[in-house]
């Protein structure tokens, strides 16, 4: 029985009258790579943002390693999580953003070496050494003294991945990591992510529009529409032979666009 890493239980997220996530149930095991696909506005990114505590949820519980994320247990009942609890839970999570969100006033090396020092209390020398290794891994060590504005989108995203890894998370969350990139630089980012999924066996939750890429690296695909999972299963089932009409419709549209 594999270890359950993340669990969404009846998670509901509303913006006013609009229900973005509708009683979502989703469970992800340790080392599993799960990709969410679906049309724009289907709530894909919201799943990640709720997991990262960037959005509050109206109902339900998100658990990481069995422990509630947005709530905590006190005297046998669940109460809203304290800042300290959120901080502790977030240490397990690392997010890579669509728009990179590197710190523009810090060099590539500082971007990767500073967060562990400030947020985890890692020693400065140690953090620098680890940052160098990670930059090496994503093929960016020669640019360590550059500022983000001096890099291409693909290079910035690789640095952002190294920065996320520097925090030593258990779970990697990718929010459309290639959507803001030139077609030419997509490959350099997807190959890094592929290496993380295959070689390093991180637990990964990803949202992407790169269907082929999702097919390649995912253990499971979730097709999302209107805040619900319409269909999920291995890529060979969901992408190659979808059973739901809505999934077929979406995939044929995507195929046409290609």
């Amino acid at each position: 029985m594999p270890n359950e890493k993340i669990r969404f239980e009846g998670v509901t997220k509303r913006y006013g009258a609009l229900t973005v996530l509708d009683k979502l149930d989703l469970s992800i095991n340790e080392g599993e790579v799960v990709t969410i696909i679906g049309p724009s506005g289907s709530g894909k990114t919201t799943v990640l943002r709720c997991l990262m505590t960037l959005e509050s949820i109206e109902d339900g519980v998100i658990r990481i390693d069995g422990e509630p994320l947005n709530m905590m247990e006190r005297d046998g009942t669940l109460v809203p999580a304290s800042t300290g609890h959120l901080r502790k839970m977030r240490r397990k999570l690392g997010m890579v953003f669509q728009s990179f969100n590197l710190f523009p006033h810090l060099t590539v090396l500082q971007n990767c070496a500073e967060p562990p020092v400030l947020a985890l209390g890692v020693k400065r020398d140690e953090a620098r050494k680890r940052a160098q290794e990670l930059l090496e891994m994503v093929g960016m060590s020669d640019k360590h003294a550059h500022y983000p504005a001096q890099l291409s989108g693909g290079q910035q995203q690789r640095v952002a991945i190294a920065r996320t890894l520097a925090m030593q998370p258990d779970i990697l969350v990718f929010d459309e990591p290639t959507s803001a990139l030139d077609p030419e630089t997509i490959e350099e980012v997807t190959s890094v992510i592929r290496a993380l999924a295959v070689k390093h066996s991180y637990t990964m939750l990803m949202v992407t529009h790169q269907i082929d890429f999702a097919h390649d690296i995912s253990d499971r695909i979730c097709f999302f529409d209107k805040g619900r999972i319409v269909e999920q299963g291995p890529p060979a089932a969901v992408i190659d032979a979808p059973s739901e009409a809505r999934t077929q419709q979406f995939l044929s549209k995507v195929a046409q666009a290609r």
Binding site: M52, T53, L54, R87, R90, R91, L93, G94, M95, F97, S99, F100, N101, L102, F103, P115, L118, A119, L120, R163, M167
Partner: peptide, 11 residues
């Protein structure tokens, strides 16, 4: 995005 990066990096 800068604020969100700070949140996810636990600053």
């Amino acid at each position: 995005g800068q604020y969100e990066a700070c949140t996810t990096l636990n600053y």
